[in-house]
Simulated assay, not measured.
Amino acid sequence: MANKQALRELQQRLAQRMQAARETPQAASWLAVECAGVALLFSLKQAAEIFTPVAIKPVPYTEPWALGVANLRGGLHTVVDFAAFLGLREPGVRGDVTQQRLVSINPELNINCALLVDKLLGLRGDEQLQPVADVPSATPRPAFAGALRRDAEGRHWQVIDLEALSRFEPFLRIVV
């Protein structure tokens, strides 16, 4: 009898916690990463999984920033050195490999790709980031470069729209 009562109480507590989780807005909406010292934000809705680097099979006749392909959870993914793609460092130059991670793009965006980033910096919420006014530039910004944000410490963050990146012609054209 006592076991039935304890089970009912447990079920009630679980139901209350699940309801509270549904009603509570998601605190984190950004995955914060760093590439060649530049702080970037990926939307959690557009990024999928984070992997420690695995063996990458080089593919001939591709852009230098296209490192090759890797098996991530049974799926074949193109691996892109994101810092090299952005022009933040020369292709082939690697940072601290012990901190590098692969961030796969959400499969709903119809591209099997993982971005090699230098460092994960955690999760960020919108309440932690303030919009920054765009600074006029002589060169146009690519479509995947979203808004700039600033955190409480004054660090600037570049939002990267992974959906726009997945349709960006130079990103899709990896064959040289």
Rank of each mutant, 00 (worst) to 15 (best):
V38C: 09
E153P: 03
C35P: 10
F171N: 00
E23S: 13
R8E: 15
D81Q: 12
V132I: 14
D126I: 02
K4Y: 02
V93I: 13
F42P: 04
Q12A: 14
M18A: 14
E63F: 00
F42D: 02
Q99T: 15
R89N: 10
L115A: 05
L172K: 13
A32R: 03
L148V: 07
Q99M: 09
G95M: 06
R8Y: 12
A32P: 00
P131M: 12
F144G: 06
S43A: 10
A164T: 07
A147G: 02
A133H: 06
G154W: 11
Q16R: 15
D118M: 10
L67W: 01
T78K: 00
F144D: 12
Y61I: 01
K45D: 11
A32C: 11
F51C: 10
Q130K: 11
E153L: 14
R141S: 15
S29D: 04
L172Q: 12
A152C: 03
F144N: 10
L116Y: 02
E9L: 12
V38Y: 05
W65K: 01
R141K: 14
L102C: 12
I174D: 00
E163N: 14
V132W: 01
F85V: 03
K4A: 12
R89Y: 15
Q12G: 01
P64W: 11
A66N: 08
R167P: 00
A55K: 06
E163K: 15
P170E: 10
E127Y: 04
